[in-house]
Design a protein around this nucleic acid. Structure first.
Lengths: 339, 339
DNA sequence: TACGGATGTGTGAACGTGCACACAGTAGGA
DNA sequence: TCCTACTGTGTGCACGTTCACACATCCGTA
């Protein structure tokens, strides 16, 4: 009738009593060791009869291992809604951790309150390591992880990231450069960029690559600076660029979502793509193929990024020292119709 | 030099020794009780000096409470990539749990291996409750949660869901009926549906609502049955319908993503929307506003669904019995340009 | 004076687990 | 006969925490 405590669960003691052996023998059935066939059989029937499930909390306390790894998504608000990459990264990480029989637990950080609670959670022994996605510069979580010396891997690398913490990412500079060069070689001359998230390494680096590719063609006034990698920012950014220079004939959007927004703004303004203006994006997300025309863009191997980050953490859990610095994954250009 | 064990952490004992008091007093500082001002000050300086962080695993073991609630996403593969709702549901749940100072941990289930590991995780004392999203009929996780009597809430309700487990959702039948009626009242006569996920309650109910709205106008041959709520399924489904009856003039797509795919197929076929064919979707996701034309659709209050599910779990954790059955949230129609 | 209450502190036990250790029996070889 | 190795089992302790309890002190008041 009353259900205040969630129902007494069977423990090793109960199993031992039911099977007529000692706790130690039960433990050996669970973790390996010498056990006679009769004892093992008795214990196994007792376990299924009583519905025994080992208590993770007790095990984690004793072993100092929880077999769980956190996947920390920082400021995911816009990410979950507009960037399909984080989902793929997550699934990639989960698959890799799953193979190593580790549980991935994802934690979402949206507010200062979340930051503090997640910090406590990470330090409290519920997880053995952490994968951190999309940290901005000076994110407090970076310091927490450094101080704890928690085995970790970052996806992307905020500029103030501790040297000892490995990261995985892509060569944003090189990729941005390559796709911008595609615009140049296809004959565009007045090329602008809708740059986003300039407080994040990815945003900064994509802008740097763009600048490097253009060389003398680079024109400071053709940079529209928007806060997020989302569709709405793309619409605004493109309108901004058209206002600054109506003769613009090429645009590098810092993400596919932005590029999609840019296409909308160009349509409004009566420009054809790729006829009047060439547009390229970044991510090769689902946006790329659902745009009209489909986007020429940079492919981000999101799933591989996730599994690579997971590997970096697992390696540390095995006691190996990961290679210092970061690991960059290849990002092939995907040529479609928009440029 | 060696870093096999992750660095000895300070415990209550260490703090007590450093502050010259007993463990009990330290515990009282943490959890409330009578403590003198001097003792409190000494303990607090000791804590920050030694960088003390309480051990969750030990606390959970003793208290039988972890202050964590699982968010279980079943078969999220297509969801994360194509359905933006799950992200919003997650953020809504996180916000509500955060206010109650509970940590949301999301677990992803993609394979049988995951199912088993997650079941162990749920039973092991690492979480106090669970929110389960998008369970299909006969999903093994349903039985696990029933057997454990774990405080839980489902988003959507698989047909074989235990009577005692509360769920939150929307009135799929009523909403589908309402939006279909919108097609009828705007003069469409040959109305088809691209139905998806007919092994899930949402899919079944949307079809039922469609059928109810049409009454005598209903024509079995104008139902295209696709497996997923995604864009690609929409393209295929619409081509299928056009093949069956070229005179079709209205389409209810079971999701916005499907509707977006349908628009693409209609464009291919040279039909104008809403001129030749009226199209309506479901979800009011970001798809709805990025389509051309923008979609008339059913608004799903995803964030509220998440926070409502969280409340249902929190209520059980406080010992209250939740109302049996489910809680349905309102789903206003959003009239845009596609029908 | 004695008493009750409020305030403050220390001690021991327990949560459920895994592991080190002790112990027992058997078998084989020197 | 003794020593060693192997198989099999039971016991005690520790992980870090919280809580119940015992104890101690001070104050106000009957």
């Amino acid at each position: 009738m009353s259900r205040p405590q969630p129902q007494k669960r069977a423990t090793v003691h109960d199993i031992a009593a039911a099977a007529g052996v000692s706790r130690g023998t039960v433990s050996r059935v669970l973790n390996g060791g010498y056990v006679s066939a009769e004892a093992r059989a008795a214990i196994e029937t007792a376990m299924s009869d009583l519905g025994y499930v080992p208590n993770n909390a007790a095990r984690a306390l004793k072993m100092r291992r929880s077999q769980a790894v956190a996947f920390v998504a920082l400021e995911p608000h816009s990410l979950f809604l507009d960037d399909p990459n984080i989902g793929s990264i997550m699934l990639g990480a989960n698959a890799a951790l799953s193979l190593a029989d580790h549980q991935m637990v994802s934690l979402v950080v949206e507010s200062a309150r979340d930051t503090e609670r997640v910090s406590r959670y990470l330090s409290g022994g519920f997880v053995d390591g952490a994968i951190v996605v999309s940290a901005r510069a000076h994110d407090p979580i970076i310091k927490v992880i450094s101080d704890l010396a928690l085995p970790a891997a970052f996806v992307g690398h905020p500029p103030d990231l501790d040297q000892h913490i490995p990261f995985v990412g892509i060569d944003n500079v090189g990729s941005a450069r390559a796709i911008t060069e595609h615009l140049v070689t296809s004959g565009r001359r007045r090329i602008g960029m809708i740059a986003a998230a300039l407080d994040r390494d990815s945003g900064i680096d994509r802008l740097a690559g763009f600048r490097a590719a253009l060389g003398p063609l680079f024109d400071e006034t053709l940079i529209a600076d928007v806060p997020h990698y989302d569709y709405g920012s793309g619409v605004k950014g493109m309108r901004d660029l058209l206002g600054r220079d109506p003769s613009i004939d090429g645009v590098f959007a810092a993400s596919d979502a932005i590029a999609a927004g840019a296409l909308e703004a160009l349509r409004e303004a009566g420009r054809s793509v790729p006829g009047n203006v060439g547009v390229v994006g970044f991510d090769d997300s689902t946006w790329a193929v659902r745009c009209q025309p489909q986007l020429t863009t940079v492919h981000q191997p999101a799933k591989e990024i996730g599994s690579c980050a997971a590997q970096l953490v697992l390696r540390q859990l095995r006691g190996e020292h990961p290679d210092a610095g970061g690991q960059l994954l290849p990002t092939p250009l995907v040529l479609r119709d928009s440029a």
